[in-house]
Design a protein around this nucleic acid. Structure first.
Lengths: 96, 96
DNA sequence: TGCAAATATGTCGAAACTGACATATACTGC
DNA sequence: GCAGTATATGTCAGTTTCGACATATTTGCA
């Protein structure tokens, strides 16, 4: 059912979002993607990362899925736990 | 009482903080500074910004002061409310 | 100086986020 | 196909963060 009037959005999936909401969601998705990338580059499982963070596998999964119940704080702290510094985080946020 | 063994830290003020804690605090301070700078550049009062955010003057003050009860989420959303996009936020975080 | 606007600080009930757990689904080699 | 491992999804009670409010302090200017 693709091809009639409009496509299903890729990630930014905008349906009546204000520019502010869009920017906020975009930032969260970038952090989520950055987290996923960094974790798999380190060949860690979600369980391993969760343990080193004092968190749980389910929360890591939600983070990487961009779940709205996950705070930016937790995303940032997770990236830092994976060795990212402020420069790295800036790069992740600025990524295309 | 300055000049003996060590100075009182400027902002990063590290006293037994792990590198992870330091990075997290550094990021928060950068966001706080960026917020303050952006708000005054726009010549808005804390009350005005609070209203446009659906928040309160006291919370804005706490944000800019780096109060630990303020989340990165709120800092980021405030910056976005001041017109910052993801690139701007990346710059703020990468700032020296 | 004295007044008014702006900002800082403290507290509190309500709302959002958390880790933990259960369980479902996806993936990988056999 | 069937195990075994990894990831996804749902729920919930405890904790954290929230806006609101009161109030103290600072700032700027006549």
């Amino acid at each position: 059912m693709t091809g009639a009037g409009w496509e299903v959005g890729d990630a930014t999936d905008f349906l009546g979002l204000s520019p502010e909401e869009e920017a906020y969601i975009e930032l969260r998705l970038k952090l989520a993607d950055g987290l996923k990338a960094r974790r798999s580059r380190k060949k860690l499982t979600q369980v391993e990362l969760a343990k080193s963070l004092g968190s749980s596998q389910s929360r890591i999964a939600k983070m990487e899925a961009g779940d709205p119940t996950v705070s930016v704080d937790l995303l940032v702290r997770s990236l830092i736990a994976l060795g990212a510094d402020t420069r790295d985080i800036a790069k992740i946020i600025a990524a295309r």
